[in-house]
Design a binder for these strands. Structure first.
Length: 881
RNA sequence: GCGGACGUGGCGGAAUCGGUAGACGCAAGGGACUUAAAAUCCCUUGAGGGCAACCUCGUGCGGGUUCGACUCCCGCCGUCCGCACCA
C-alpha cells in the first residue's frame, strides 16, 4: 500500500502528554542522586511565589530551564534541576483579611494547584527535593543561620530612619522602594525612625563590587546595575573647625565627605541635613530653623516632592573655618537637599562646579567663584551663571593649586590636610563611601520567618537557644484588624528569658521574604539534612551553573543572594564565593491589549479578530461590539491581556506552548504572544508527527548500517543531518533557543523532501534508508529538550523501546562536515557577482585563475584590469578593479 | 541629569571573527485537491527597472576607516531600561 493512503491520525497531545509524564514519573528518571559520580550541572529557575496559578512568564522561564536541563542530562552530566516555593509573603495575609482563609491554607492550596500545572508542562524536575519556605523544616535553618550571623557580627539591631509602607503597614528595604513607592502596595513610603534588625551587607560592599568582574557569565547589564547600586566613591573626609563664638552647643567641628576636594577654594557655604545633630542643636534656640526642619521632615523622601522641590535652606548662624585659611569663614546652612544617610550628612558647597549648590546660591544670592577653568577658556573672563561646570580643566583662583589639573589638585589637598594634625587626628583622611545601605529585614507581618530572639528587660536581646528552634508561627491568629497578629497574640510572645528565666517577650517582627530566597538554592542540594546545609552536598553542587529568571531581580534577589553566600561562607555553611556562575535574564511575555468604548479592558479569550495587517479589527465575542486594539504590553491582570497556560495546554498541549515560547523571539527579549504563532507551533507538531508516521514503516530497524557501497544521496543526507545536529547543539549551548529551532525547521524541510522524493530512494535502497533512519532518530532527539512528549511519541513510532529522555545526545560525525569542495561567493569591488566552486584545499593562485575566468566576473570588470584579488580562505573572494 | 541597551521586509527575527543582508517562522497573494469548508500540498513575497539573462537601490540619519561595514570609529535622531538631590 502506498504511504500516501496510510492516513495517520493527528497527534493527540491531551492523550499523549499525561501518558509520558506518568512513565517518566514511574521510572524516576529525573531524580538526582548526590553520589552520582558523573560531572555535575546545576540548572535552576527562580522559584515561584504561590500566587494561585502559573502565568505565561512561568511557562517561558521553566521551558528555558527545562531545555538546558534535558540537554545537559543527555550530554552525560548529573543534572540537578529542582523546584520549590517562595511561600511567605503579603498576599497570603491579604487573602486572610479579605476572605477569612488562613494564610497557611491559602498558600498550601495554591502550591497544590500550581504544582499540578507545572506537572502538566512535562518539566524534568526532581520533585523529591521540593521545598516551601513557609515550612518550619525550611525556616528553622534560616533561624539557625540568623543566630550564626548574629554571633559573627553580621546582624545588627539599630535605630534608623526606615521606609514605612502605610498600606502594607510594614518597613521596606531601600531596594524595595521603587520611585518612592512600596514595591508591592505602590503607596508612597513614609520616613520613620524605628529600631530594626539589619543584615550588614555593607561589610561586603567592596567584595560584592570587586567580584562582579568574576561573573563572566552574567549579563553585563545586571553587573552594571549592581555596580551602580553599590555606588563606590573615593574621596576625602575633611574636618572643618567651627568658629567657637558661633556654635550654640559648644561644637568644635564638622566632618564633611567630598569627592571634589580640588574645589575647596571655590567653597562659599556649608550645609547640613535637617536631621544632622548640628541642625538639631542649632534649632533649640532658633524657632524659625526648628520650623524649617520640621517642614523638611514632613515632606519625607517621596519621589515627586524630591524632583520638584526647590533647594531651600536656613542659615544656622554657625560659621565654619576654611581648612587652608583661618580668617575665611563659611556660613553653615541647614538645607533640604542634604541627605543624612550619605557621607556625613554635611557638605561644603562649591556652586561653580556643582549644579545643586549653584541652584542653592542663586536662590540666596551667595554668588560663586569658578576654580576649574575648562580647556580653551580664558581664566580672566570665565564665569558661571546658570550651569555648573563639572568637566576637566585647570585650577584657577585657588592659591597654591593654580595651574594644576583636577587630579593633581585633589592629591595636593589630600596630602597637605593629611599631614596636619588637630588633636590626635589629621585634618583629613582619604575615605571610600558606598551608596549601599545595610539590609533592613524586620517586617511587622505575620506570614514570614520569625526572628529568633527574645527581649528581656534585664538581659537585653537574648538569642533563642538552638535547642529551642524552630520558633514556629502560631496558627491561631486573627486578621480582623490591621497590624501584626503576632504582636497581639495572647500567649505566643510571652516566654521566659532563656538566660535569667524571668518573664520576657519574643521578637514579633518576622524576616523580609527576600531572606527566604537568598539561600534556597543551597538547601536544594540536600533538603533532608538536619543542618542548614550539608557541606559535601553544597560543595558538590554549588555554584548554580545556570540560573534563569527575570531581570526585575537584577538588584534585589541577586544582590541579597550574593550577600547571603558570603555570610554563609563566613559562618561555615558553604565554601563558595558566588552563588550563580551563569545567569540568564529572560524577557517578558507580552500581548496586545483590547479596550472597549466604555474604557474597560477585554481579555484575549473574549475577543474575535478579523482581517490582517492594517485592517485588523477586534470585536467582543459576547456582543459583537468593536473593541480598540491597543499597544502590546506585559501580560497583567489590570490590562486583562493575559492568556491562561491551562487553556493553551488543554487546547494545544504543553509541547506547543513550550515550542512557541522558545521559537518566536530571542530569549532575552520580550516575546509577543499571538494566536497565529501558537497555531504555527501546533502546525509544526502535527507536521513532524505526520512525517514520522509516513516514514517509519519504510525505515530499516534502529541501528541499521550504511553498507559498504552507499547509494547516491546518502552522503548528502548525512551531511545535512550532522550539520543540523552540530548547529542545534551549538545554539542550545549558547541558550539561543530561537535559532536552534530555526535550524530544526530547516532540517525538517530537508527530511520532508526526502520522504516526498518521487523516486522513494529511502524506501527501496537499504543504505539510503539507513541515512533516513539516522535523520529521523536525530530529529526526535533534537526536539526532545523543547518538546519532550512529542519526542517520546516519535521515538516510539520509530521503533525504539527506550525513552528519548534517557538517551545520550547523538554524536556529530565530524568527518561528514569536512567538505571536499567549497563554494565561495565572488565579489567584484565589494559587490557579489558570482559563486565559484573549488577544491577545499585549492591553492590561492588556482582560485584566482578560476575566478577571473568566470563570465560574470569578466562582465563586471567590463574590460578593466583587476588591480588585486583578495582571497579569504574558506570565506570569500573579492576582485578589486 | 547620569549610566546602559537597541533601531534590519507587512510582522517576530537571522547573519559566532569586518566577508553572499533578510536564514527560519508568521502574515499576505496565487494555484492544486474538495460538491464545499477545514486540513494538506505547490508557487510568489525588501523596493524599483527589465520579456529575460540580469541591473540599480537597500540594515534610523550624516560622515569616516577598509578590497569589503547591519557589524568598527565620530556626530546626530528615535525607542526602551536602570539609577536619580549620593556631595
Amino acid at each position: 500500500m502506498p504511504p500516501e493512503s496510510q492516513k495517520s491520525d493527528r497527534y493527540n497531545a491531551r492523550e499523549a502528554e499525561p501518558r509520558w509524564q506518568k512513565i517518566w514519573d514511574e521510572r524516576a528518571i529525573f531524580s538526582t542522586r548526590n553520589d552520582d559520580p558523573r560531572e555535575k550541572y546545576y540548572v535552576l529557575e527562580m522559584f515561584p511565589y504561590p500566587s494561585g496559578r502559573i502565568h505565561m512568564g512561568h511557562v517561558r522561564n521553566y521551558a528555558m530551564g527545562d531545555v538546558v536541563a534535558r540537554f545537559m542530562r543527555a550530554r552525560g552530566f548529573s543534572v540537578l534541576h529542582p523546584m520549590g516555593w517562595d511561600a511567605f509573603g503579603m498576599p497570603a495575609e491579604n487573602a486572610a483579611m479579605e476572605r477569612r482563609v488562613h494564610p497557611k491554607t491559602w498558600t498550601y492550596d495554591n502550591i497544590a494547584a500550581m504544582k499540578s500545572q507545572l506537572k502538566s508542562m512535562g518539566l524534568s524536575l526532581d520533585w523529591s527535593r521540593e521545598i516551601a519556605t513557609c515550612d518550619p523544616a525550611y525556616y528553622r535553618h534560616q533561624q539557625k543561620m540568623f543566630l550564626d550571623f548574629l554571633a559573627a557580627g553580621l546582624v545588627e539591631r539599630k535605630k534608623s530612619k526606615v521606609n514605612w509602607d502605610p498600606v502594607d503597614q510594614t518597613v521596606l528595604a531601600n531596594e524595595q522602594v521603587i520611585e518612592g513607592r512600596g514595591w508591592r502596595s505602590g503607596a508612597p513610603v513614609e520616613s520613620r525612625e524605628l529600631t530594626q534588625w539589619f543584615f550588614k551587607i555593607t561589610a561586603f560592599a567592596q567584595d560584592l563590587l570587586d567580584s562582579l568582574d568574576t561573573l563572566e557569565r552574567w549579563p553585563e547589564k545586571v553587573r552594571l546595575m549592581q555596580k551602580n547600586w553599590i555606588g563606590r566613591s573615593e574621596g576625602l573626609l575633611i574636618r572643618f573647625a567651627l568658629d567657637p563664638a558661633s556654635a550654640p552647643g559648644g561644637e568644635r567641628e564638622i566632618d564633611v565627605f567630598t569627592t571634589r576636594h580640588d574645589t575647596l577654594f571655590g567653597a562659599n557655604f556649608m550645609a547640613v541635613a535637617p536631621d544632622h545633630p548640628l541642625a538639631t542643636s542649632a534649632a533649640r534656640k532658633n524657632p524659625a530653623l526648628a520650623a524649617f526642619i520640621a517642614e523638611c521632615k514632613r515632606h519625607g523622601t517621596a519621589q515627586e516632592i524630591v524632583e520638584t522641590a526647590e533647594k531651600l535652606g536656613v542659615d544656622t548662624g554657625i560659621r565654619a573655618i576654611h581648612p587652608f585659611d583661618p580668617d575665611w569663614k563659611l556660613p553653615v546652612y541647614v538645607a533640604n537637599f542634604i541627605l543624612m544617610e550619605y557621607g556625613t550628612g554635611a557638605i561644603f558647597g562649591c556652586p561653580a562646579h556643582d549644579q545643586r549648590d549653584l541652584d542653592f546660591v542663586n536662590r540666596y544670592g551667595l554668588g560663586n567663584v569658578p576654580v576649574v577653568c575648562p580647556p580653551g577658556q580664558d581664566p580672566a573672563t570665565f564665569t558661571i551663571t546658570e550651569a555648573a561646570y563639572d568637566g576637566p580643566g585647570t585650577m584657577i583662583n585657588s592659591r597654591f593649586l593654580d595651574g594644576m589639573n583636577i587630579e593633581e589638585a585633589k592629591e595636593e589637598v589630600a596630602r597637605r590636610l593629611e599631614g596636619q594634625m588637630r588633636g590626635d587626628r589629621p585634618l583629613a583622611q582619604r575615605q571610600v563611601n558606598f551608596r549601599l545601605r545595610d539590609w533592613g529585614i524586620s517586617r511587622q507581618r505575620y506570614w514570614g520567618c520569625p526572628i529568633p530572639v527574645i527581649h528581656c528587660e534585664a538581659c537585653g536581646v537574648v538569642p533563642v537557644p538552638e535547642s529551642d528552634l524552630p520558633v514556629e508561627l502560631p496558627e491561631d491568629v486573627a486578621f480582623d484588624r490591621p497590624g501584626n497578629p503576632l504582636d497581639r497574640h495572647p500567649s505566643w510572645k510571652h516566654v521566659p528569658c532563656p538566660r535569667c528565666r524571668r518573664p520576657a517577650a519574643r521578637e514579633t517582627d518576622t524576616m523580609d521574604t527576600f531572606v527566604d530566597s537568598s539561600w534556597y538554592f543551597a538547601r536544594f542540594t540536600d533538603p533532608w539534612t538536619t543542618a542548614p546545609t550539608d557541606r559535601q552536598a553544597v560543595d558538590r553542587w554549588l555554584p548554580v551553573d545556570q540560573y534563569i529568571g527575570g531581570i526585575e531581580h537584577a538588584i534585589l534577589h541577586l544582590l541579597y543572594s550574593r550577600f547571603f553566600t558570603r555570610a554563609m561562607r563566613a559562618t561555615g555553611h558553604l565554601g563558595i564565593d558566588e552563588p550563580f556562575a551563569g545567569l540568564f535574564t529572560q524577557g517578558m511575555v507580552v500581548h496586545e491589549t483590547y479596550q472597549t468604548r466604555a474604557g474597560t479592558w477585554a481579555a484575549p479569550a473574549e475577543v474575535r479578530l478579523e482581517g490582517a495587517d492594517d485592517s485588523r479589527r477586534a470585536y467582543l465575542l459576547s456582543t459583537g461590539e468593536p473593541v480598540e486594539i491597543g499597544p502590546v504590553e506585559k501580560m497583567s491582570k489590570s490590562k486583562r491581556n493575559t492568556v491562561d497556560p491551562d487553556d493553551i495546554i488543554t487546547t494545544y498541549g504543553a509541547d506547543v506552548a513550550r515550542w512557541f515560547m522558545l521559537s518566536d523571539s530571542p530569549p532575552e527579549r520580550d516575546v509577543i504572544w499571538t494566536e497565529e504563532g501558537v497555531r504555527g507551533a501546533s502546525r509544526f507538531v502535527q507536521r513532524v508527527w505526520r512525517l514520522v508516521n509516513e516514514a517509519a514503516p519504510h525505515l530499516p530497524p534502529p541501528g541499521a548500517g550504511f553498507g559498504s557501497a552507499p547509494a547516491a544521496g546518502v552522503k548528502s543526507l548525512r551531511v545535512q543531518t550532522h550539520q543540523a545536529l552540530a548547529d542545534v547543539s551549538n545554539e542550545i549551548e549558547r541558550l539561543k533557543f530561537n535559532t536552534a529551532i530555526a535550524k530544526i525547521y530547516t532540517f525538517v524541510n530537508t527530511l520532508e523532501e526526502v520522504v516526498h522524493d518521487p523516486r522513494r530512494e529511502f524506501a527501496g535502497e537499504p543504505s539510503y534508508g539507513a541515512a533516513a533512519r539516522e535523520g529521523f532518530d536525530i530529529l526526535a532527539q533534537m526536539i526532545a529538550p523543547m518538546m519532550p512528549h512529542l519526542a517520546e511519541e516519535c521515538w516510539a513510532a520509530l521503533g525504539h523501546d527506550t525513552l528519548v529522555a534517557a538517551e545520550p545526545w547523538p554524536e556529530v560525525v565530524e568527518s561528514l562536515l569536512q567538505r571536499d569542495t567549497i563554494t565561495l561567493p565572488v565579489q567584484v569591488n565589494g559587490k557579489k557577482r558570482a559563486d565559484v566552486t573549488v577544491a577545499r584545499d585549492a591553492a590561492q593562485t588556482d582560485i584566482e585563475a578560476a575566478v577571473l575566468a568566470l563570465v560574470a566576473v569578466q562582465r563586471a570588470l567590463d574590460g578593466r584590469k583587476p588591480k588585486r584579488v583578495i582571497v579569504v580562505p574558506q570565506r570569500i573572494v573579492n576582485v578589486v578593479a
